[in-house]
Amino acid sequence: MTAPAPVIHVEGLSKSFQGKLAVDHVSLEIDQGDIFGFLGPNGSGKTTTIRLLCGLLTPDEGTGTCLGHDLLREAYQIKRQVGYMTQRFSFYEDLTIRENLDFVARIYGMTQRQDVVDAAIDRLNLTDRQHQLAGTLSGGWKQRLALTACTLHQPRLLLLDEPTAGVDPQARRDFWDQIHHLAADGITVLVSTHYMDEAERCSRLGYIASGRLLADGTPQSLVAESELSTWAIDGTDIHRLGDTLKSVPAAQQIVPFGTRLYVSGTDTAALKSTMDAIARKPGFQVHPVSPRLEDIFTRLMQRQEDTQ
């Protein structure tokens, strides 16, 4: 049995704006049904990469396919099967909810347009507000409308650019439930975010900084390959402890988290002896934990800055 062709397969994708590299030789392979979490700080090139994938930008270098279609030559075929949710709400604020959905349904030439739009509005629970202008909706509702609109034509690949930015926790949770449902139906999802808790809900992760893809793998493999050891220290006076630890070279990352302090470093032996010393002090419980994704990504960033 041969493995099915990857949904996204790109190699060496680069794009620069005014001589500044925004995406630097990114290679990606994403399989069907994956929920690929695309992480990275602001300005790291997430949006640019997504735009390259759906043909909204032409790469300076690199090649690839999306849903088996060539990125450069078959933009039309790609567009028909991809749903792209932009970072900023980009449906028409001066059209009503219904008019927006109707417009999308017409553009994709859907048969039974009326029914599809009715069903979508029903799923959104917006039947009584369907004639309201989209511009009057709150951020959370705009996000729901946008997701519904960009899945209306039943795309095989969803590209979601920071879909949950500025959305309340309950709406975020509902949103992720929906993503998992879509993935269960065989839809491939690429979603960019900078929420770490969302990263943990993805089946695969990519981390990009300054346009370079620094890590790519399942959350488990990223943890396994991180070369990072992490200890959690519980106690009442962890802040003062954190300050004193700053002078210890092996403690590369010190992150307070409520009444807990996470300490990570690559020099496991040196860090372990420091931790053992703390464990002997009264008022602190010390135990090794697996490194958190946040720590792993921070480490990747530090390492990149060091080599530059």
Partner: peptide, 10 residues
């Protein structure tokens, strides 16, 4: 910003 959406459609 609606052009981005329009261009992403066929």
């Amino acid at each position: 910003g609606t052009m981005e959406n329009l261009l992403a459609m066929p």
